[in-house]
Design a protein around this nucleic acid. Structure first.
Lengths: 179, 179
DNA sequence: GCGCGTTTTGCACGCAGTTGCATAATCGTC
DNA sequence: GACGATTATGCAACTGCGTGCAAAACGCGC
């Protein structure tokens, strides 16, 4: 259950409304924990219920912005969670299943799909690299920055791996018609 | 929705009962698409309903082994699925969320958790390497084998990445008491 | 100041996956 | 041949997440 804690983190970085959060997720935390706006609204309501966050006083009504901020209990809960243990979640990679299936029923149509993924991962890699240049231009920063940079480096390494792996697989794959 | 196709693949490699499937999942396909026995039983029932697989004739009763095999329609469906497109699922990595949270509320307790993960990934890497030595001792095999070896190489690369990344993060992290 | 699109929040439903428990057959042991 | 442990299948309830849709406020144009 990481979503509530991802939201607490985002709100500590900057108090926001549901929609703002959704947008910030799309280009930072969401790289590692994606969430739709409904998930976020639901979770904000739960966190407010649990009194870990609160909406800054405003006339509450539907369709009206509600700005949330983290309460002391929320910060404490996040601190507790950072130290808590949690096993890595089991891997679930449809592409690997697909390749395995192809080894049984034939590789027809597989190359195109690998190609498409290659493009997607290349694009993501570019995006990460751009963020790195923008946010971490020099080495030797503060502890806080080193952690954030570390997370970004993980993303870059993962995407680099996929780009390399997909290229190699496409190389080894018997060519298809219409390529 | 990869589970039914993972099961079809496994059944094509070798007709099996539900429990056998569960066990084979735990040490092959399950590395990339884990599943519990309940998921597998439910999915087998659905696949049988859809007439993609069938139970080889036996006195059907509870607690009695039911061996399943893939029907022609099932093989066709799997072939169709291999060529189908599917976007990579959004990443969901609790550990990255945790590190990011730590950059806001402090790293207390984080090192221990990173250390634990390092151990787990090291162990998984060992397991993959053992499988590689056992199943793919030499290069230049058949197409089918090259695909399977490719999937395994992906697993090895991922685990290697984690081991390296975690070691570096632990290196950079300020040391804690009681380490 | 009225209509209309946009922004922001939210509900309802369904599916995939997990956990806990139940039930039936089988096998070993004394 | 009775008992308990193990094997094998399955049901029920719950949770997290995704999709589709609705509803309230706001902003803009005329």
């Amino acid at each position: 259950m990481s979503l509530p804690h991802a939201i607490l983190t985002a709100l500590l970085e900057k108090p926001s409304s549901g929609l703002e959060l959704t947008r910030r997720f799309d280009k930072s935390i969401g790289f590692f924990w994606s969430a739709t706006h409904q998930q976020i609204y639901r979770e904000l309501a739960r966190l407010e219920d649990a009194e870990l966050i609160r909406a800054v006083p405003q006339p509450p009504s539907r369709g009206q912005r509600k700005e949330y901020e983290v309460l002391p209990d929320g910060r404490a809960e996040l601190r507790r969670w950072v130290a808590a243990g949690q096993d890595p979640r089991p891997v679930r990679d449809p592409l690997m299943v697909r390749v395995r299936a192809a080894s049984v029923v034939g590789t027809e149509g597989l190359a195109a799909e690998l190609h498409r993924h290659l493009g997607l991962h290349r694009a993501q890699l570019e995006e990460y690299r751009a963020i790195e240049e923008r946010d971490f231009p020099v080495e030797g920063a503060a502890d806080e920055d080193r952690l954030l940079h570390g997370v970004l480096r993980a993303g870059i390494a993962q995407e680099s791996f996929w780009v390399g792996w997909l290229a190699q697989m496409l190389d080894e794959l018997p060519p298809e018609e219409g390529e």
